[in-house]
Design a binder for these strands. Sequence first.
DNA 1: TTTAGCACTCTCAAGAAGAGAGTGCTAATT
DNA 2: AATTAGCACTCTCTTCTTGAGAGTGCTAAA
Lengths: 357, 357
Amino acid sequence: MMNELTERQRLILALVVRHYTETAQPVGSARLVERYKLDLSTATVRNEMAALTEYGYLRQPHTSAGRVPTEEGYRYFVTHVVYPSDLPEPARDTISHQFYQARQDVEQWMPLAASILAQHSRAASIVTAPHSERSHYKHVELISTQGRQVLMVLVMTGGEVSQQILTLAEPVVQERLSAAADRLNQVCLGKTTEEIAAFPPRADSLEKDILTLVLQDMNRGEQRVSGEIFLDGLTNVLSEPEFLESGDARRAVHLFEERSLLQDLLARTTNNATVGGVQVLIGGEGKWEELKQCSVVLARYGIPGLITGTLGVFGPMRMPYARTIPTVRYMADLLSELVSETMAGDDNEQERKDTRG
Amino acid sequence: MMNELTERQRLILALVVRHYTETAQPVGSARLVERYKLDLSTATVRNEMAALTEYGYLRQPHTSAGRVPTEEGYRYFVTHVVYPSDLPEPARDTISHQFYQARQDVEQWMPLAASILAQHSRAASIVTAPHSERSHYKHVELISTQGRQVLMVLVMTGGEVSQQILTLAEPVVQERLSAAADRLNQVCLGKTTEEIAAFPPRADSLEKDILTLVLQDMNRGEQRVSGEIFLDGLTNVLSEPEFLESGDARRAVHLFEERSLLQDLLARTTNNATVGGVQVLIGGEGKWEELKQCSVVLARYGIPGLITGTLGVFGPMRMPYARTIPTVRYMADLLSELVSETMAGDDNEQERKDTRG
DNA sequence: TTTAGCACTCTCAAGAAGAGAGTGCTAATT
DNA sequence: AATTAGCACTCTCTTCTTGAGAGTGCTAAA
């Protein structure tokens, strides 16, 4: 049912998609012939368009208007026409150059990735920080603040940091806290949640209390679906006509701010069909009411099963997929590289030990 | 020039502002009399309105339309009419209750504050993380990753954390790194940038290299104008008619994404006139072309000169100031409390030492 | 199989007309 | 002296009409 299109029909579908993504206007037969210097008459094009409409790849907003791609039309285009293309060399260079500017500055990685992605796709971007499914304890720091309150800073071997305020049963001086932290740091170094929970070290009551909170914190990290979420380029999308006119599309922006919805969306990433490792969710695919007029292009990065994140782009269904998909893929590759170079070194060793034993 | 208004004129100005903020429609004399059961004829109201227009507090979109407040009108309203009002008890309770839900979870503080602020002001919110002008060294952690690359995690006494990737001249094993970190932690504990720079501890070349980067990192933190920026509630503002219609207002959203512009805006906070500790920037006040149709309500929180942050709200000029201003003020009070309880304890001691010596 | 030709459909822009909301001014009223 | 009723006038906004334009599908010829 998918492949019955003739070469010429594919060409025409591709041109309609292309022209529509550029102009946001329904495309008529005459326009197409003139614009792309087709060696065909308008009548022929009209016949082919009628066929494509029959198949469900195009539709007419009203009886005597041009054609617009349907969801299926875009999907056919994405899977059968632009599939294997790679990002052209110069674009790759620009991106990697921009990205490696902030090589040192870990805190800038994710926002920068989001910014670059937004800029190059001219859409809104989503990037989640890399997130490991298993944390290894590295170091805890206890900072006395006021009375019974203590600020705990917990560092994992991958470099992830989490902070928590804890309230002790009674005030404890900084020296005592530091001593407790030192002990925990010695006995827990490199251990996972399970390892610590299975063989709890000997400890006094203060240390036990803290250990409980450490475990709780590590657990919470592991339970989370993804790391912190970074967004950028919302304004790109807001200036598209779809978002100015239809309330439908505007509602989709809401999904962007509501982190819980976004989490949900990202969580389903792995289930769908991919295009060369990149997920393309067109018009919500029936599942997402809010995404009716929109598309989302997502990819996972990192080291599968160990430390991963998601990144992607959100925009109107009328999106330049031919450019967006390779951009997302390339960005995912860049981040994967970064993660395996800088964050997985230790984890890898750890993992090797784990699987050996 | 400001106080020549009669009581009645103030009343009418207030009602025009109120009605316009509610309906977004120009208000006419008849509407006003009917809606607020004024004991005046429409003609009288018309005369007063003509006077207010003369003074520059109201204007007419066109000859035979109702009146709309001008920038000056809003400003008069804000400074002379709603000034001293506090947030009503129940609203305060709701907010503090929402906020203290996440008392423990330090990482949630800022995003939660932004979310609450957005929700209660029904506008877009801005919150910057607290930022201290002077950092005190607490702890450094060095994590070997791959080859010559090392991930450095630096913790300050206030609990601020910063990360950096550094590339060494030659590969160094984790043991060596840990040892170096231990030494630095002993000699630098509690010191400021200047103190460390003035009396560099004896150290081997590896430690020296790292110390340089530590100082660089601390310095960078101190140089920054503000901590991380958290935004929320953009969708609130996007559904306002100003943003749907006029391209002017829509351009202002751009300012929200461009962190550098936002930094600039926040930096100027302290210069302007305040309304009970809260800055109200109406229509960009001539300075901000992008904010022509918009207003920003900002407040600083924290401990002045020690550790501070900024928070506020961004929305159309037609904003319910009477509610927004107290909300922002209350939120700033809450965060100030939080900061002095949990993050300034150590710094305070430190500071006391500093000023004593 | 392709194409020229043509009648037909539907939208969109422009213009016209009338309703509605609001104003300013004048003269009367309190 | 301040307030108000009355009224002519102005300007926008909605509704309706009309014509141009773009595009289609179908039929018959190439």
